[in-house]
């Protein structure tokens, strides 16, 4: 069980330079194992800056990041060890692949952890299997794979470190729908298997409705909302004001309600919408 707490975090870019800009200000929240948290906000809202503090890639000007109650910067020399516990998958992670073979690339993180050869081998094979990376692919050069496959290899490279907390920065950007579905499914599977705490930075409300338990909404450097998906999406006006949207089917339901149909607005996925409408049509009445 891991708990990540962020306390009064403030980060200023280029302090005391002409380019000075407060990226995040006084952000406080806490999250624990087993949750998938969607981090949403428009570009420049500070969401990417915020998550880069979790594993000490950025160091806040004030405030703390606590892992299980201990400040991650308590011993600055040990920050690498924190990075093994809190993994981070960057945007377009396939651009960081560098090894001759897929196997070696996935092994890079576990090797840096100083594990035994046996452990490394086991982790690489297990992770590869979970992500649908075949034995044949493991021996190939990562640069000979398709875009979707490369993405999975890059994700495997971080998952093989078996972090208790894992952050994904727009894991589905640029993928086609099939590639996107696989990646989201695998993230969920990782959470289910390891009980990790997962953060997903995303622009897609449809994706978030499908996989996230909670949403952390950033707006101009401030934490605007941190609540269940249902609670956040039930406030479309507030989201709209900060330049965000709700899923298309939620919009349909809001419009129906505006037209005087007593439907529940808290419908965020197509499947929910279908089952809701079916029982609504049959029962003529549905308050659940």
């Amino acid at each position: 069980m891991a708990t990540l707490s962020v306390e009064n975090l403030t980060y200023v870019y280029g302090e005391k330079s002409p380019f000075q800009k407060t990226a995040i200000e006084d952000v406080t929240f806490s999250a624990k194992s087993g949750e998938i948290i969607g981090v949403i906000g428009h570009t420049g809202s500070g969401k990417s800056t915020l998550v880069q503090h979790f594993n000490g890639l950025l160091k806040a000007n004030s405030g703390k990041v606590l892992l299980d109650g201990a400040d991650i910067w308590e011993n600055p020399k040990e920050i690498r060890k924190i990075r093994f516990k809190i993994g981070m998958v960057f945007q377009y992670p396939e651009y960081q692949l560098f090894e001759e073979t897929v196997y070696k690339d996935i092994a890079f993180g576990p090797t840096n952890m100083g594990l035994s050869a046996e452990d490394i081998n086991k982790r690489v094979l297990d992770t590869a299997q979970m992500l649908g990376i075949t034995a044949e692919m493991l021996e190939k050069s990562p640069f000979d794979l398709s875009g979707g496959e490369k993405r999975r290899v890059a994700i495997a490279g971080v998952m093989a470190m078996q972090p208790e907390i894992i952050v994904f920065d727009e894991p589905t950007a640029g993928l086609d729908p099939a590639g996107r579905d696989i990646v989201l499914e695998k993230i969920k599977e990782y959470r289910d298997r390891t009980g990790a705490l997962v953060f997903i930075v995303s622009h897609s409300m449809e994706d978030m409705a499908r996989v996230a338990d909670k949403l952390l909404v950033m707006n101009s450097g401030h934490l605007s909302m941190f609540d269940t998906v249902k609670k956040v999406f039930s406030n479309p006006q507030k989201l709209k004001k900060i330049g965000l949207n709700v899923p298309q089917v939620t919009k349909v339901f809001s419009a129906l309600k505006e037209k005087g149909i007593p439907v529940d607005e808290n419908v965020f996925t197509v499947n929910d919408a279908v089952s809701y409408l079916l029982s609504f049509l049959k029962g003529g009445k549905n308050n659940d």
Partner: peptide, 29 residues
Amino acid sequence: MSAQKARGADLESGTLFERIKALIPILVP
């Protein structure tokens, strides 16, 4: 650099040879 650091790459310590070797994960991509 951030991405490789997140995978535990150590760019700051070690002998000269080790440091040069540590640049490979950055230079190749």
